[in-house]
Design a protein around this nucleic acid. Structure first.
Lengths: 191, 191
DNA sequence: GTCTATAACAAGATAGAC
DNA sequence: GTCTATCTTGTTATAGAC
């Protein structure tokens, strides 16, 4: 078989991903997942133990995807500054928010070690990648010696995550871009 | 009467504020509000039209309180840089998140102009205050002329809001402080 | 103003037929 | 593997007594 139809299990995971992104864990009901995926009650409980189990599969996939997307930009061409800039300016569905970061505002996700783990791991990985870039930039003389790579990496990530908050509050993606431009000005090498 | 007992209406609003902070709009049920406040079904629907109406009262009060708290620090003593630092370093219940900012992740809040308005207004006001401080710092020669006050203000706010995300993801307030230290290094006057 | 009763509907899951 | 009951509990509100 060269081209199999997408499985019910697959549709369940993808539907859950979309709903988690838009409505969070609390706001995502099994009923809504079933409606969106076109699956029946029985299918869902056959493939998954329940809502948390299905959500875990969805979150893991979203986390992996985010990692791949970031990887592509961060390990792309250019100087460390340019690659950080590319990460900050990459196309985003700003008003929809970060599919990973938004989960931190879900009490049920934070309360569950299993559900929080992929979120934590993704953000931690991103921080390491950014810190390594900053370190490189310091070695190349592009960034000041006085900068702490771990700190700057956290600031970059926080600006992105916070940019989503500002944008959603104002109802416009512009606020995200403004915050990013501010950070880039502060980071820009003197050269 | 010099000291009246706290009214039922008051207890309803305060209970709603606590629950909104911890569990968001979706996660806050009228039932939970009633249990926490000790009020009955009838009292709630006597004083408020329903959940959105009560939430609006709660959100407005939280927004006002946040403004007052920020005001105290931002218009306190010190140079512009020192006052921004004081804002960034002020005591926060980091793992609990921002009681105003977290509402932007609630689809029902964002979808309602009435509920989003106080959130938007508070963040906008904060941005203006910070921008004014940056402008002052530029005039006093403390910040570089090249800085755009609006942009830097957005970056400062985003770092705070994003700091909460990093902290909740890792389960530790340390991530918030790390991001703030990074930003302060970037902002610090050469002097 | 506050209470209890009631209700219509959604959430989350199980049972068992097909 | 998928489907349709069925079940328990929670959500959000209304009605009407006190």
């Amino acid at each position: 078989m060269y081209s199999a139809a997408v499985s019910t299990q697959e549709r369940l995971i993808e539907s859950t991903r979309e709903l988690l992104w838009d409505r969070g864990y609390m706001g995502t009901s099994p009923k809504a997942i079933l409606e969106r995926s076109g699956a029946g009650q029985g299918s869902m409980y056959h493939h998954f133990k329940g809502k948390p189990d299905l959500a875990l599969a969805a979150i893991r996939r979203t986390a992996e995807e985010m990692r791949a997307t970031a990887q592509a930009v961060l390990s792309g061409p250019g100087t460390p500054y340019e690659r950080i800039e590319a990460y900050l300016r990459r196309e985003r569905d700003v008003l929809r928010g970060c599919p990973v970061g938004r989960l931190t505002m879900d009490p049920d996700v934070i309360a569950s070690d299993a559900l929080r783990a992929p979120v934590d791991a993704t953000i931690d990985w991103l921080r390491e990648q950014l810190a390594q870039l900053v370190e490189e930039g310091k070695e190349q003389g592009q960034f000041a010696r006085a900068l702490d790579a771990e700190e700057i990496a956290a600031t970059v990530l926080a600006t992105v995550q916070g940019g989503y908050v500002l944008a959603r509050a104002s109802g416009s993606p512009a606020a995200f871009d403004t915050a990013v431009r501010g950070l880039l000005t502060l980071l820009r090498p003197a050269s």
